[in-house]
Amino acid sequence: MAMVNRPQFLPWLPPIGRKTLFALAVAFICFAFAFPVLWLILTSLRPESGVYYVHRGTEFTLASFAEVLSDERIVAAFLNSALISTLATVFSLLVTVSSGYMLSRFTGPASRLWFGTIYVFRCVPYISWVLPLYFVTQSWGLYDTYTGLLLPHIAVHICFFSWLMKGFFDGIDPSMEYAAMIDGCTRWGAFIRVAVPSALPAISALAVLCWLFTWNEFLFALILTGNRVPVITVVMAQFVTEMGLRWNLMAATAVMALLPAFLIALFGQKYVIRGLRI
């Protein structure tokens, strides 16, 4: 059917005009989407005084980055964010892959009940459980600790990711697992050695998403931590109020906070696009 023409955009225009218009439109859209980030990068490269006329002047410097990196609190915040994101990703996947597998492979009251539960809790606004979690973590002695921040970050993804994982496993034919069990595999063996490897593209997609979500999360850290566990989003939000005039430093911090997310996303883009297509 290669001969069939697709319906054309603006069919009355001559092909040349159509192509130019299309290219211009696409270029404009890309510009609009990338502009805030480009502007941020440009701002971060301007010297202290140049920041107020970013649009003119040609002096560029990396001094803002050097100054930001000499601030111990910011460096600690970067390390904390990276550590918590990584740990949260690992544990969150351990927990949700098995829960999603259960939802996909078993029917019955237990499965229906669990599905209903995660569906309802997916709707609950974060503030409605993180706000009281503030005094729960205080009474458990977890306030302002790694554990106290990590565990809620694992818990928050249970509902959404179990639901996504169920969809992924639904798309995988279970007959391979039955075959493995006939050959003497236990249920756990069939799950870990057969089902999990075939769901690996989807699991990679979730890993990328989970890492990004945790790295970008703000409200939990704002409520559940004080001074001992600074994370990057909270430190940056404090910046806005404390150093509201030093935009070059703020931009430099923001660019550095974007960098790991960009790398992860660029590297994981194909997994996410492939994983979400199942």
């Binding site: 502007w39 941020l40 703000f218 974007l258 996303a265």
Partner: peptide, 15 residues
Amino acid sequence: LMVAPVIAAIMIRWI
């Protein structure tokens, strides 16, 4: 997709 809401807000505030 990769930009934290907090960072997005800071960028927009500056713009």
